[in-house]
Amino acid sequence: MWKQDRRSEIDRSNLPDPLSHRLRFEVEQTLHSLYAEADLADQIDSLYLPFANWLSSKLGNNEGPLILGLSGPQGCGKTTFANVVSRILIKGFELNAVVISLDDLYSSRQDRLKFAEQYSPLFKVRGVPGTHDVNLAISLFERAKQLKDGEVMKFPRFDKSLDDRKAVHLWQEVQGPIDVILFEGWCVGSPVMKQDLSAPINGLEQEKDADGVWRSKVNDLLADDYHTLFNMIDLMVWMQAPNYDVIYEWRNKQERLLEAHLYDIHGGVLDTLDLKVMSAEELKGFMQYYERLTRHLLSVMPERVDVLMRLDESQSVLEVKYPTEH
């Protein structure tokens, strides 16, 4: 009889946590909606739920939402991680959590073209500081901090395939009050580049920014407008890649997922529509716009953030370093 009871205790200890078991379906549905790998749901106990629990413990009595910055190289999984954690906070912790992507804060195509005419043609390509509507972002965060029960606001949505902001009626509607904002993006929280910018580091800079005007303007914006925006962040998370070279493979995988997503929507007529999906070679050129700042971030961010996630070449999280509690 004692052995039977003891065996039952051991069996119960191997059961999944009741909360993670209840949230498994929510996580799977979130991953499916993002065209992410389904087996990521297996990390609910080891990664997503512990992080959500840690984050929920940081909510105090401050007015307005806690703003979490989540940053990492292109294709590392920021968007997936942010959306899964948000869903867990909503369904498991009964918190009003909202995900805001830096990619949804791009300036309109028309405004980017105007900015490019003023400073450098390279600003026509979205991505680096100078291509986002920082004033809009700051006003959105300020409004979110004041959002009361029963009030609503809208956050912009950007369509990468169209290279322009979506119509306002397609923006994300959010009800107040907001508990947590997960602000994710490849250069969210970036400090200014202090190294010498004069020498080009790739073919793009050599051929199209020989005088350094573009990269210098990017750095000036990091020290000014973007610094103001990033100062609104309460806690910062960085997802560290093992090296720079692997980032191309991650980003190429992301682009192929976008292509598959568009084919799911538009089917055989995709080629007749003005939808932009980069080939592997086009992507190599495109990533040169990001290279200098990405290398800078890989170097400095691990020592500047509250939570550090180390990834391997397959994008799996090897380690999560939380801040030491006192």
Rank of each mutant, 00 (worst) to 15 (best):
L23I: 03
H32A: 15
Q29E: 06
E28F: 02
V27H: 00
K3L: 10
Y35T: 13
W2Y: 14
F25N: 13
S8R: 15
I10R: 03
R22D: 02
D5A: 13
W2P: 04
R12P: 05
F25I: 15
S13W: 13
D11H: 12
H21V: 11
W2Q: 11
R12C: 08
I10L: 08
R7M: 07
L34F: 01
S20E: 04
H32R: 11
L23Q: 02
L31E: 01
K3V: 11
R24W: 08
D5C: 10
D11V: 13
V27W: 03
V27T: 07
F25W: 15
R12F: 12
P16I: 05
L15F: 06
Q29S: 09
N14V: 11
L34R: 02
Q29H: 12
V27Q: 04
L23R: 00
R6L: 15
A36C: 02
S8H: 11
S13F: 11
S8F: 12
A36T: 00
E26L: 11
T30S: 01
D11R: 13
R22W: 11
I10W: 07
L15K: 05
A36V: 04
L19E: 01
R22H: 13
T30E: 04
Q29F: 03
Q4F: 04
P18Y: 05
H32S: 15
R24K: 12
K3D: 07
T30C: 10
H21L: 14
H21N: 14
L31M: 01
F25Q: 14
S20M: 01
P18K: 02
R22C: 09
S8W: 08
L15G: 10
L15R: 09
N14G: 09
R22L: 11
S20W: 00
E26F: 06
R6Q: 05
N14K: 09
S20N: 05
F25D: 14
D11P: 01
I10A: 04
F25S: 14
R7F: 10
N14W: 11
A36G: 05
R6C: 05
P18A: 07
S8G: 11
Q4R: 15
H32Y: 14
D17L: 06
L34A: 05
Y35K: 09
Q4T: 14
Q29M: 09
N14H: 13
S33T: 05
Y35V: 09
L15S: 08
S33L: 02
E26G: 07
R22N: 08
S8E: 15
Q4S: 11
T30G: 04
E26H: 12
E26A: 02
D5G: 11
A36K: 04
R6M: 08
P18N: 07
P16N: 03
R22M: 10
A36N: 00
L34S: 00
R12H: 05
Y35E: 07
L23F: 06
E28H: 00
